[in-house]
Write a protein that binds this DNA or RNA. Structure first.
Lengths: 170, 170
DNA sequence: CAGTTTATGTCAGCCTTGTTGACACTCCAA
DNA sequence: TTGGAGTGTCAACAAGGCTGACATAAACTG
C-alpha cells in the first residue's frame, strides 16, 4: 500500500484510525453517503425540467440573496457559461430575479422570486429531512465530528466560502 | 421553515444540533467537502482520457477482484450501458480483465491488470492523502462521528453494500 | 478623454456520463 | 424446449461540465 500502514499495531492504538483500510472505508462512506444526500432532491428535480445544477444555484441564491454572478461562480466552482445556462432558464421560468447593481451597474444581483423560494424550500426540506434523521440517529457528538472532518477535507478557498456562509446564517 | 425549528431553545439544548440552520450548514459542508474529496483524483484523471466514472469502476474492481458486472452495477447505481462504455475503454486500454465465469459462463469476472492496479494505487493514494490529513487534523473521535453520520445518511441498500465491503476488507 | 480592465452575457462546439429502447447471444433451469 | 437471466452492443438523446471567441456596458486609470 501507499505508506506501509498495513499493520495497525505498528504505531500504537492512537493511530489505528489512520490505516489505509480505515481511509478506504472513509472514502467509500463518502461515496455512498453522497448518493443518499442527493437522492431526494434529485427525485423532485427530475419531475421538473431541472437538475442538480439548478438546485445548487437556487440554494446559494436563497442563502445569500443579492449575491452577484461572480460570487456565485466562485462558490459553485464552474464556468460562467455553465452557470449562465442554468441562470437563464431559472430567470426565464420566473424563479430568479436578476437586477442591475446600484453602486456598480455592471453587476447583477440575484434573488429568488416567491416561486423560487417555494422550490428552494421544497428541495431543502427533502434534503434536510434525511439529514435530520441521520443526525438524530447519530447523536450530537457524532455530528460535531462529522462537521469537523468535512471541514478538514475542504480546499482552503472552499473552507473560506463555507465559513463565510456559516457566519451569515447566525 | 419546514417544521418550526426557528428558535433553537424551543426543544432544549440537547436538540440544538437539529435546527434548520445546523442542517443547512451540514449540507453545505457535504457539498464543499465532496468537492475536495474528488479534486485530487480528478486532476490525475483529466491528464489521462478518463473521468470519475472510470475511477469508480477501477476502485470497486480493485476492492473486490473477480466481481461480476451485475454486482458492480448494483454498487455503482448506473445502467449497464453506462458502465459498459467505461468498462470497454478500460478493457481496451489493458487496465481491466474480463474473464468468463467458470461456474456460470454468462457472467464476466472483472480484475485489474498490473497496469490497472498501478492506476488504482495512484488515484487512491491521492485521495487517501487528503483524507488522512483531514482525519489526523480532526482526531479519532471526530472520525468516528463522521463515519456514523455518513452511514446514517445512506439508503438502506447502499448501507448494505457498504457493510459488505467493510467486512471483506477486514 | 482614451485606453484598459472588469462583470456579464452569449454563441458554437466538444466531452463525459448519465438515460431509454431495441435487439442479439449464451447459457441455465424448469 | 422454452423462458428467463446475464451480458454486450447499437442508436439516440440530455444534462452539465469545458474551451474559445466575441460583445457590451460600466468602471477605473493614466
Amino acid at each position: 500500500m501507499a505508506d506501509g500502514r498495513h499493520s495497525p499495531a505498528v504505531r500504537g492504538d492512537t493511530l489505528l484510525f489512520l490505516t489505509d483500510e480505515q481511509l478506504r472505508q472513509g472514502s467509500e462512506a463518502m461515496f455512498f453517503a453522497y448518493r443518499g444526500f442527493t437522492a431526494d432532491p434529485d427525485r423532485i428535480l427530475s419531475d421538473l425540467a431541472y437538475g442538480r445544477a439548478h438546485h445548487r444555484a437556487i440554494h446559494f441564491i436563497g442563502r445569500a440573496p443579492g449575491t452577484t454572478v461572480n460570487n456565485l461562480l466562485n462558490i459553485l466552482g464552474v464556468t460562467k457559461q455553465s452557470l449562465n445556462r442554468v441562470l437563464r432558464t431559472l430567470i426565464a421560468d420566473g424563479l430568479v430575479l436578476s437586477e442591475v447593481g446600484r453602486a456598480d451597474k455592471r453587476e447583477r444581483h440575484l434573488h429568488l422570486t416567491e416561486e423560487g423560494r417555494a422550490l428552494e424550500r421544497k428541495l431543502s426540506d427533502a434534503q434536510r429531512a434525511r439529514l435530520r434523521a441521520a443526525f438524530r440517529e447519530a447523536g450530537p457528538e457524532a455530528v460535531a465530528g462529522f462537521r469537523t472532518v468535512l471541514e478538514a477535507m475542504m480546499d482552503p478557498e472552499m473552507r473560506a466560502s463555507y465559513a463565510r456562509l456559516k457566519e451569515s446564517g447566525t
